[in-house]
């Protein structure tokens, strides 16, 4: 039996679907309205945060709430290197810098805190968000004497394409990691960390490196997101909502499959966009109801529901065919 390699049959159909979606996305600015391009950009942003959160927290079972910190570091990198007075460095270079700085912070924080488990790790990572937020505030007040910063304007299509590029890169990385030895190591850590260590998995290294990889994508997305915000201050950049949204989106979509978090993020982000414009006063309330319903009735997320339906349909079709056979 070969479990480390995919069969061509199992690979073809998802590959084709991915290709069609990719082509539709790449050509979107040519046929879609500006509104659509902007909306898809923000959906892509949520997908990136969710998938990169799942990349680390999914298999290892360590619930990180540091997403807003890494995302915010990217946003601030953008504010520093791409001020409205003129870019200090090229946009793409800043995207990479934002990602790398987030990774470095993740390496440091990870090495210090990944020995914490369960709720302690979650609380600590959330504390990181608040800590960096307050540090940013202090810095703006006492050192630079500003409240916030303006980020230079970037063409919407450019923002869209960079976001898309980060997304594609992230999906490829996730796919490769899941398929690799590294993915097996992460899953074994999530299953039983002690046993993993005793069969030779370097648990600390695997956790810290994955944490840093996931932070890279969060930071990179932050850089490009900032050019869409145009005004940035610590409260905007390190908004704790960005720590919780990816978790909710991942739970909503279901974390077992690679496409679960993606679908969760797409529907969630779209819903948020629509509700916010249609029911500005009630949107949080409706949102809350949807969430509670999802957690109560969809323990495996939307993907779990779809898989259940799919099994039902197949059984029903099989049953129908058998009946027909009996009749003839």
């Amino acid at each position: 039996m070969n479990i480390t390699r995919f069969t061509s049959k199992g690979f073809l159909i998802p590959g084709l679907i991915s290709l069609v979606i990719l082509i539709a996305l790449v050509t979107l600015p040519f046929y879609g309205s500006l509104y659509n391009v902007i909306m898809v950009t923000s959906i892509l942003m949520y997908i990136i945060l969710t998938v990169s959160w799942v990349l680390f927290s999914g298999p290892t079972g360590y619930m990180s709430l540091a997403t807003a910190a890494f995302f915010g570091i990217g946003i601030y990198a953008s504010a520093i290197f791409l001020p409205n007075t003129g870019a200090i460095l090229p946009l793409l270079v800043v995207v990479v810098i934002g990602g790398l700085v987030s990774s470095l912070v993740a390496l440091g924080v990870g090495a210090l805190t990944l020995r914490l488990r369960g709720i302690y790790f979650a609380i600590f990572t959330f504390g990181l968000v608040v800590l960096i937020l307050e540090l940013g505030n202090w810095w703006e007040h006492t050192v630079t004497h500003t409240r916030g910063r303006f980020v230079m304007l970037v063409d919407n299509d450019v923002i869209f394409y960079i976001m898309l590029a980060i997304f594609v890169l992230l999906m490829l990385t996730t796919y490769l990691i899941r398929r690799s030895k590294f993915g097996l190591a992460m899953r074994s850590i999530g299953e039983n960390e002690e046993a993993a260590a005793h069969i030779g998995v370097n648990v600390t290294m695997v956790k810290v490196i994955t944490f840093a990889i996931s932070a890279f994508f969060m930071g990179a997305a932050g850089v490009i997101w900032a050019t869409k915000l145009t005004y940035v201050d610590p409260y905007v950049a390190f908004n704790p909502l960005f720590s919780f949204m990816p978790v909710l989106m991942a739970i909503f979509g279901g974390m077992g499959q690679i496409y679960g978090p993606v679908i969760g993020a797409v529907i969630f982000a779209y819903l948020q966009e629509k509700l916010q414009t249609e029911f500005p006063y009630y949107y949080m309330l409706i949102f809350g109801f949807v969430l509670v319903a999802a957690i109560l009735y969809l323990p495996d997320g939307l993907i779990g529901l779809i898989q259940k339906l799919w099994r039902l349909i197949r059984r029903w079709r099989k049953g129908g065919a058998a009946k027909q056979d009996a009749n003839t």
Partner: peptide, 16 residues
């Protein structure tokens, strides 16, 4: 590793 197939449990051992 309860949620993994039996073979993958052992594979983790030989891999790492």
């Amino acid at each position: 590793f309860t949620n993994m197939p039996v073979l993958q449990n052992v594979l983790a051992g030989s891999f790492f």
